Simulated scan of single mutants.
Amino acid sequence: MADEKIVKDDSEWRQNLTPEQYAITRCSATERPFTGPWLDEKREGTFVCVCCGSGLFRSDTKYESGSGWPSFFDAIGPGVIATKEDLSHGMRRIEILCAKCDAHLGHVFPDGPKPTGLRYCTNGHALDFKPDAAD
């Protein structure tokens, strides 16, 4: 079934991810601002989960938020992003996760542009990029 959850044990995730990807996606770490990949990516394409390859965001929803992390105002479709309350670091935030494999992606904030007003603030190391095919 296409909507089945991807479940791997810790050793499998460690084998398939770089140490930084593992720390971010499996342990909810955060890369330093302005250091991760994809911040300046301008090509047309799809940003996918680095853990499972599930499509998460399209390039036409990416925008420069000034935060230092790749930011998007909408997900590629309903149900691809899961959310949960995050009370760490003395703050109340909404964590975003890949709905398919539960990879930590970042957080969503209500200060984004129209039409959604949302800012999906993602760790670049949680994403991979698949450019659209050349014409």
Rank of each mutant, 00 (worst) to 15 (best):
D74I: 00
I6G: 01
K8F: 00
M91R: 12
R32N: 06
G90T: 07
V48S: 11
T18F: 04
G112H: 13
S28L: 00
T122C: 15
S88A: 14
D86N: 10
G117Q: 08
C51H: 05
P110F: 01
D102N: 15
C121K: 05
C52F: 13
T35E: 01
G77D: 12
F47P: 01
A75I: 03
F129Y: 06
D132N: 12
K62F: 10
P78S: 14
C121G: 08
W38R: 00
G77V: 02
L17F: 05
I76T: 01
F34T: 01
F73L: 05
L97A: 14
R32G: 02
D111K: 05
C49D: 06
G117F: 10
S59D: 08
A126C: 10
V50K: 13
H104R: 12
S11N: 11
G77T: 09
W38L: 07
G53S: 12
Y120F: 15
G117I: 06
S28T: 01
R92C: 04
P78W: 05
A103I: 05
S54G: 08
V80A: 09
H107R: 12
C98A: 06
E44C: 09
L118F: 13
Y63W: 13
C101L: 02
K130C: 07
P131W: 07
P113V: 03
D102Q: 12
F57Q: 01
K130A: 04
H125D: 00
L56R: 08
